[in-house]
């Protein structure tokens, strides 16, 4: 897939949900959205693999859900406002998911937020020019 360079490509640790990512993650996100209905949450929790088969995702996308690989979901086109519904179904908060994605324990992440959050210093640009 050819993708034209974007001004936001050099923001580190960030996966802007543009049209390319929306296309790539469409079924993963629509699966996530299906969990807004309580009967679907029940069906998913009873048999995750069978439920996931109802949506035409890639096998890799299904694996990220089964493995609770929150960052992997985002890298394969998942949008956090959608994948967080998987979190809600599993009783996991936005903050839990954010800690998982940034590779620290939930306590470390919570402490970072209590101390004012992640600083923008050194986190603005991969090239370090901004």
């Amino acid at each position: 897939m050819t993708r034209k360079p974007r001004d936001y490509d050099d923001i580190p640790g960030t996966y802007v949900f543009d049209y390319e990512r929306a296309h790539q993650g469409y079924h993963l996100n629509m699966f996530s959205m299906s969990l807004l209905k309580s009967e679907n949450r029940k069906a998913f929790l009873e048999n995750e693999e069978a439920y996931l088969q109802k949506f035409p995702m890639t096998p890799e996308q299904r694996q990220t859900v089964l493995k609770r690989d929150w960052l992997g979901m985002v890298k394969l086109g998942g949008n956090i406002y959608y994948t967080s519904k998987i979190g809600a179904t599993l009783g996991k908060s936005f903050q839990y998911i954010a800690a998982e994605m940034s590779g620290v324990s939930q306590q470390e992440y919570a402490d970072m937020m209590l101390n004012g959050g992640r600083t923008p210093e050194g986190n603005r640009s991969l090239s370090g020019k901004k």
Binding site: Y15, A98, M113, R118
Partner: peptide
């Protein structure tokens, strides 16, 4: 206001901005 919910940069806050 400031927030990033996804990716390795989750938790970014820019009080000054």
């Amino acid at each position: 206001m400031s927030h990033q919910l996804h990716g390795e940069r989750a938790g970014l806050i820019n009080r000054e901005w």
